[in-house]
Every structure is written in C-alpha cells, then in structure tokens.
Amino acid sequence: MANPIVALRAYRDGLHLIIKPHLSIAEVEEAIQQEISRMNRSLSGTSVQIVLKCPVLEEEEISLLRSKLQETYDLTVRGVEVTEAPVSAPIAAAPTMHTITPATDSRDSRDSEPSRIVPHTIRSGQTEEFPQGSLIIYGDVNSGSEVRAGGDIVVLGTLRGSAYAGMNGRLSAVIIAMDLAALQLQIGNYMHRPTVSQKPRGYPEIARIGAEDVIIVEKFVKF
C-alpha cells in the first residue's frame, strides 16, 4: 500500500521525496523510515529532492530532516521545492490517512470552477489553455496540439494531442474523451503515456489519478 504521507519517486533528475499533508514532523520521520525500508535496495550515497505538497514545513524542521536523512540513510538533500498543495485539508482536520482520490477534493471545487467551451476542432500547433477551470471541446484535439486546463478536460471527439488537466495542482481533475488516443496525458504533476493502439476503442474513456498515485485510463461509464 502506498504511504499516505511520504512517497519516494524516481524521476529523470533523480529521486524525489514527496511529503504530503501530515500532523507532525515525527509522523513524517516515521513515514520516511517505513518508505525507505520498503525499498529493497540501499539508497546510501544518493541524493534526493524534497518536494513539499503540504503546507510548508518550518525552516528548522527542514534542516532537522536534512540532517536526519544524511545521518540515518546517507542521503544528500539536493534541494527543497514547494509544489502547490491541494488547497483543501487543513492539517488539524485532516485524517491520519490522507490519500488523494478523486473524491477527496470533490465536486465542490469542480462546481465552483468556470468552464470554457471551445466549439471547434483544435488543430496541430494550436494550444487551448484555460487555467481558471475546465475545458470542453466540441471537436477533436489533433496530433501536435495541446489543451491545458486548471480543471477537467472533456473532448467530445477524438483526443490525439496532449492534454494537461489540473494544471494548478488540482489532482481530482480528469480527462474525458469520446476516443482517447492521446500520446501524452498529464494531471497535476503526474504524467502518463498510454500505449498506442491503432484501432479506436469505440467507447469513451476517462483518465484520472488512481489510488496508487498513477494515472489510470478506463472506460467511462458514469462519473
């Protein structure tokens, strides 16, 4: 099961230590220990980037973490970055188990968001961007084009270009297309490259972040 507070991820630029909303620094330390022991190989000598997806830690807490990582696991901290946390979840109210599922930050943010309708096909080289909310496209999104939205992306046609939903960090954002044939999907910071199949599936599909923190694409039945 994925650790609810801390995640270790390998990216192109090296390891990322992602820290999500939590109750106390002690809890974070415990979670780090669990996460590292879960990995079967030694991380000794490697460097790690700390990515904060939570309300920012105190300066001294970070330096505490830094020295702790160095001493206990021989991990060098490359840097600390703060990515925008999901706006919800004030720490005190957060349950100990905070997993990101489409249901957590819920319909509310979706309902309060504006959406924009694009009543035509988006062609190669064109970009449609709407950071304030969701995009609904009455047409195709062709190969070589890009759609980006703060909220959801709904394509009432074939999605062949790249789509980036939840560009402001709303991880409950989804991408729905009548025919989802995109080469690249992105929701929040998560990226997905679906395996390309030549044949259209013949049913609409939805892409969203699943419980395992990866983008899953499945048949769209209902929301």
Binding site: R123, S124, G125, G144
Partner: peptide, 16 residues
C-alpha cells in the same frame, strides 16, 4: 501519410 497530414492540419488551422 501521418507527417503530411499533421502539417496539413497545422496549415488548416492557420487558414481558418
């Protein structure tokens, strides 16, 4: 072929 079609698609967008 796909490369010509993608370029044509780009041009159609510009013409529109």
């Amino acid at each position: 072929d796909v490369s010509a079609i993608r370029d044509a698609d780009r041009i159609i967008g510009l013409l529109q």
